[in-house]
Design a protein around this nucleic acid. Structure first.
Lengths: 214, 214
DNA sequence: CGGAATCCTCTTCGATACTG
DNA sequence: CAGTATCGAAGAGGATTCCG
């Protein structure tokens, strides 16, 4: 085993498992659900194919990722997080929350993917501000991703897919949506920039409250 | 700038700043307070000297670490976290909490340092279980570190140094203390193994409650 | 002795091309 | 679609040396 810290420290142990380059970004990709090899490559933007293959092997060996062969009609292989892999979410969200604060405003020079919204929403969500709240929101990038944030009794779940009876639907391009959830664009400015908002206008304020600026 | 992800994603941004090998472990070392170059090298156990120098330069350039020259009597340079560096603590604690779960029981084969207790205590501390509690605990490794955990109104602070009027003092070797805070050894077993416990016996139960197994 | 810079080797990464 | 193969460039690891 090469390049491990092998120290009796939880942080060092975590980094021995997911500290290598690209490893946590692969976890990010899988947080939104199972994905195929090529989807992963696309979502990771610039990962060399050999490195992706190597990391998947390592993460599988570490018990964080599982590969599964889909049933015949869709004959394809997908990768998904194991339970242990899902347990990384609080740590990944905490890192994302920290990183957001120094993220340059979206200006088109950095690539972004609509499904990254899932992590951004989880990272931004403020449990205290959402106390007692129960409603859902839907975000759509036409022709790309559909992301929903469902709050139940103050607990949030962000995932790919439609929301059931969302109080609010926001349709915009990926750049605008990511900028909104990063806090660099507020809903009013996004609206002016071409975003389409449907639903209860008051829900917009509640949404802003439970996704405070980082 | 080499090897950056440059993606519009908080996690990628965080990893661009602290994702390189050794970077987060340097943050771990500095969480317990300012340290000199040689202290860092000792606490990181096996870091090559050139890599430590390079990382410190990068972390300083990123605004996470500051170098400071001490006043004449102690004429020496120390490194310390900036405010932005301290903000990493929740993320580091979350990673440590995750990593602890798969940390092999302390068996002497992996190096450990007494001051890692500071991170271990912060990672293990359970705010919900500590609600309303106010008392402090002191951990000592004779001839090495003195660590205190101070809980005030359910909020914890772990740091190097003595506690004021601790409800409990535990004196043991580093291995035993780290194993205790990892949850792999319970206080009763530690006592049997030679740990010295002074203070209110009931405080031992309260301590175990606010540091649940990972 | 603290705080590095240097030299060298070895591994990994990044980019691209290629194959079952 | 799901990887493997190849190859140059960059970093990590280890030991040693240098400077105040």
């Amino acid at each position: 085993m090469a390049r491990v810290y092998a120290q009796h420290c939880g942080l060092a142990q975590a980094l021995d498992l997911v500290g290598e380059r690209w490893a946590l970004l692969i976890v990010r990709e899988l947080m939104a659900g199972p994905r195929r090899y090529t989807d992963l490559a696309e979502g990771l933007v610039s990962i060399p194919s050999n490195v992706l293959a190597a990391r998947l092997r390592e993460l599988e060996a570490a018990g964080l990722v599982r590969r599964r062969r889909l049933a015949p009609p869709a004959a394809s292989t997908v990768y998904e997080l194991t339970g242990r892999g899902h347990e990384l979410e609080p740590a990944v969200a905490a890192l994302a929350r920290w990183g957001m604060k120094s993220l340059p405003a979206a200006n088109g020079s950095r690539p972004f993917r609509a499904h990254w919204l899932v992590l951004a929403l989880r990272a931004r969500f403020d449990e205290d501000a959402a106390e007692g709240l129960s409603e859902s929101y839907e975000f759509e990038v036409p022709g790309d991703a559909l992301v929903s944030l469902t709050v139940e009794e103050g607990r949030a779940e962000a995932r790919l897919g439609a929301a059931t009876e969302p109080a609010l639907r926001i349709v915009a391009d990926a750049e605008t949506l990511l900028a909104m959830t990063d806090g660099s664009v507020d809903p009013a400015r996004a609206l002016a920039g071409g975003a389409l908002i449907e639903g209860d206008p008051a829900a917009l304020g509640r949404l802003a409250a439970i996704l405070p600026s980082p």
